[in-house]
Amino acid sequence: MIVLLDIVTTAAILFVVASGLLAIFGVLKIINFAHGAWLTLGGYCAVVTTALGLNPWTALPLAFVAGALLGAITEMVIVRPLYRRPLDAILATWGLGIVIGQLITLWFGRDVQFTPNLLSGTVDLFGASYSIYRLFTIAAALIIGCAFAFLLEGTRLGLSTRAVIMNETLARALGIDVARVRLITFMIGTGLTGLAGVLLTPLTSVDPNMGVGWLIGAFMLVMVAGSSFAALAFACLIFGGAQVMVSTFVSPILGGITVAVLCALVLRVSPKGFSRG
């Protein structure tokens, strides 16, 4: 039973971490390899709010705003010249990740920082105690998923975005401001990643390299999911589940590479991953 809960919460955490990357890849067809740096940025937003003595929850909006602002600058300066060179965009954003990581190190030092838990304690479920915070991540994943569904299906921006995803040339011809859609998408994606960074703080330690470990897993999941949030949720459940099973029953070290290896194999068999059935 605990394993089942572990699977669902692991999938929820993976979904939270990968959704910002997916939003950007789905619309811009660009892989933001500085994704890990935004997670770190979010983590340090939690550190800053703690240092200022604010309620730990205020880190969430702070991280979203900081992530989105930095994302806006990044899109305009670094990503915009590279839309036609997607492999170079991977490299340039990786370089940006190094820069952000070093700036954080210069400012805060390279030591591990501690942040107060957003929700502490455990709850008794099925005869065993389980961390309340891990359960909360399920809610967080659902909220993010629903928010995206609403943004895409229920707003004018979402309509333009879907048009850009389907046929960018036609969207441009119809007078949709593609550059604006890209900028806003990038800001939402990076803002969300900053938010995910805050949500990670109770689960991992905060240090200048905290994001890098999550990058590959998120990247692989997004490759499999294509541009669909439903596919991402599905991929998180399947591969997150496999990860928990391997970690629990085989070896935690092998568990760490389960997601990457399985995603690579899925992509070998079906290059489009889960995005088409």
Partner: peptide, 14 residues
């Protein structure tokens, strides 16, 4: 030093 290398790298790619 790493900051300089990272910045140079980004600028160079673009």
């Amino acid at each position: 030093w790493n900051l300089v290398i990272g910045t140079l790298f980004v600028a160079m790619i673009i």
